[in-house]
Write a protein that binds this DNA or RNA. Structure first.
Lengths: 201, 201
DNA sequence: ACACTTACTAGAATCCGTTCTAACTTCGGT
DNA sequence: ACCGAAGTTAGAACGGATTCTAGTAAGTGT
């Protein structure tokens, strides 16, 4: 008896078997591929399902809504950013320099697939996501600024999150065609120099 | 000849006649009323049209998409904020104090109709709006900080816009139920004190 | 008043996210 | 090898934004 009826809300099926992991991977891959072409519009649930070789109902079992799917795709991108940073940590000598470095690296990554980036960022902002982008980015910024979360005080956490917020908005403006990469860099540098001014070197 | 076939993209029909202005007003009013109840979901195009007493096609002639409608509603709210500020300017003695004052006043205004606020903010972020919220808010912040746009240099404009960006993100967090009014005030104060630190008193 | 362009109306039609159904498979336990 | 639960499938069905169509009203120039 004791049936485990309810799936862990965020994650679809239990993903016990190997074929389920593969299905999940195929879905994410199909979704990212479609979005990197035509943006959100091209990433239609029917199309994703078809391209991943699963039934529509199955797609919805793995990702209860389109937003969940988008969030998962973004999560993968963030993983990649984090591991890229672990591989080659930012070299600047000041905390704000390192933060700018990370943000601009992320910006370049997103610019490589503008349609995907557009789809992802917008969907994220819309989403009622529980494990959000913002927090993860803020944590990352704190870390490269030299303050592992434990050592940061509340004020520093707020400042790092604020810098993340500025970056997200600039990204949106870029997606709307109103900023170039250089604009963003310039603006982020200015904001970072103020927000992170009194972080310990 | 010389037919003016194309409507000015943002604004729907030419709005030449009085009855067209009234129709537009009725539509905006219906939209705001519906949204302030049940949020975006309640603000359905059919319902708005019905409640405004126009045909669905006409609604779409005035506002080519739901987003355009939302943007127009937001515009009206911003007008109200600006006139409220003109009536009772912020009293704090420092530029950042005045900026915080304005932002928190706007926050309270939005909190009064949380469903509406939610609908509006999200739609705004999604929208490819040409006349954006962000710029208008940044201009307003510069003004209350004591720098009419003409006197502000580029760096100050960027810092004001950054503060606006931080505020928008905090607002989103509030709509997600992850911030209280007091949280926002605290966080905005911290960000403003850094971002506007060297504005002339 | 007349002709004609433009605006409006009612309603059907389309598109896409999401939900539902009924039958078919796969898997773990026995 | 067999049973029942959980996973999968193809496809229909539903809901809301958006588009389309045919016909009616309103406004403008002559």
């Amino acid at each position: 008896m004791e049936a485990v009826q309810d799936l862990p809300p965020g994650s679809g099926p239990g993903l016990r078997t190997k074929s389920q992991l593969q299905r999940r991977r195929r879905i994410l891959q199909a979704a990212a591929a479609l979005a990197s072409r035509g943006g959100v519009e091209a990433m239609q649930m029917r199309t994703v399902a078809e391209r991943a070789g699963v039934a529509l109902g199955t797609l919805y079992r793995y990702f209860p809504s389109k937003m969940d799917l988008v969030v998962a795709v973004v999560g993968e991108e963030l993983d990649m950013l984090e591991s890229s940073i672990a591989r080659r940590p930012p070299a600047a000598h000041t905390p704000d320099g390192r933060a700018v470095d990370v943000l601009m690296r992320a910006t370049r990554g997103l610019m490589r697939e503008p349609e995907l980036a557009d789809a992802l960022i917008r969907a994220l902002i819309l989403a009622d996501v529980e494990l959000p982008f913002g927090d993860r980015m803020a944590g990352l910024l704190l870390r490269v600024a030299g303050l592992p979360e434990v050592r940061a005080d509340e004020e520093q956490a707020i400042l790092a999150a604020s810098l993340g917020a500025v970056w997200v908005q600039e990204l949106l403006e870029m997606l709307r065609g109103r900023r170039t990469y250089e604009d963003i860099q310039h603006r982020i540098e200015i904001a970072a120099s103020r927000l992170l001014a009194d972080f310990p070197a």
